[in-house]
């Protein structure tokens, strides 16, 4: 399923080996792993089967029985009650804009630090590293206060600005190390052709580093989508909430029964699952490429 970069090259030599030693142990190990996997994904399965169960069905059979028939009303009711389409749109547009702007800002910073090697770049890098480490709690109150001063409180714009900068701190750090290794011949060739710094950036550096930029874009999108703390503080009105905030504040709501809670869980998981499947290749490559977060 996931990226399998190196197909174990030793496989042919092993098969014979394994055949002679075909013992029950290998199936015990496989069985143990399958049991562990089942434990890990059981919560998701339980949510999925109860999300499509009618309340009567649930009351009769409990949480573990399979639904007698597929019942979509729980999901539809929940969707309409929280106006889920709106939340999806809010999450999507913030994550998308943050990913685009965050990648742009990372490119500019990394171009100056990694390729331009501006003076004091080590200190800039230390700064971006520290910015990555900061807990959001240490920034939240001044940001809250300042955003109120400039009328950006409870607005998606404030979230976009803040996360663009936060994600770009990570992006700068990662991309600078990539750009430090950038092939000098390409830069020299661009020089010879008389391309300026801006032209070189857009027509040489960006196209060559597109795979890394793709990984960054994916990361920024998913991270922003899943962000909870700052959106919780900043997006107080219903119409501005993102998916995680809407689901988070509904927790423990008295109007939520068991099946509707499952339904809300399921439709919260689905977008994440879709991104996971869509971005899987980039993501597995990326997690291992620069794991600072």
């Amino acid at each position: 399923m996931t990226v399998t970069a190196t197909r174990a090259p030793v496989e042919p030599a092993r098969t014979e080996h394994a055949a002679t030693r075909a013992n029950p142990l290998r199936f015990v190990i496989l069985g143990a792993l399958l049991a562990l996997l089942l434990i890990v994904i059981a919560p998701l399965l339980i949510i999925a089967i109860n999300a499509v169960k009618s309340p009567a069905d649930y009351a009769g059979g409990g949480p573990l029985s399979l639904p007698t028939h597929l019942y979509w009303d729980g999901i539809v009711d929940f969707w309409n009650r929280v106006n889920f389409g709106q939340k999806l749109w809010n999450s999507f547009i913030t994550s998308f804009v943050v990913a685009v702007l965050g990648v742009l800002l990372s490119i500019l910073n990394a171009y100056a630090l990694g390729i331009g090697k501006v003076r004091g770049r080590l200190w800039f890098l230390v700064f971006f590293l520290v910015a990555n480490l900061l807990p959001q709690e240490v920034l939240v109150y001044p940001l809250y206060f300042l955003s109120k001063e400039v009328q950006l409180y409870d607005s998606l714009i404030s979230i976009v600005i803040i996360f663009t900068v936060i994600q770009a701190a990570f992006g700068t750090y990662l991309l600078t190390s990539v750009y430090q290794e950038f092939p000098t011949e390409l830069l020299d060739a661009a020089d010879v052709d008389g391309a300026g710094k801006v032209r070189t950036l857009w027509s040489v550096v960006v196209p060559v580093s597109r795979p890394t930029l793709g990984v960054l874009f994916t990361f920024f999108f998913i991270w922003t989508w899943n962000e909870f703390f700052l959106p919780l503080v900043f997006l107080v009105s219903n119409d501005n909430q993102t998916v995680p905030v809407a689901l988070g504040v509904l927790q423990g709501d008295r109007l939520m029964d068991a099946t509707m809670t499952s339904a809300s869980g399921l439709i919260g998981i689905l977008p994440a699952l879709i991104f996971f499947l869509v971005f899987q290749r980039t993501l597995t490559r990326g997690i291992t490429a620069g794991a600072i977060k």
């Binding site: 994904i41 949510i47 998916v243 905030v245 689901l247 809670t261 869980g265 919260g268 991104f275």
Partner: peptide, 16 residues
């Protein structure tokens, strides 16, 4: 898989 689930959903899932 659990890594990709938004934290709020983890809360709903386990809270339930």
């Amino acid at each position: 898989l659990p890594q990709i689930i938004p934290v709020a959903v983890t809360g709903i899932l386990w809270g339930w």
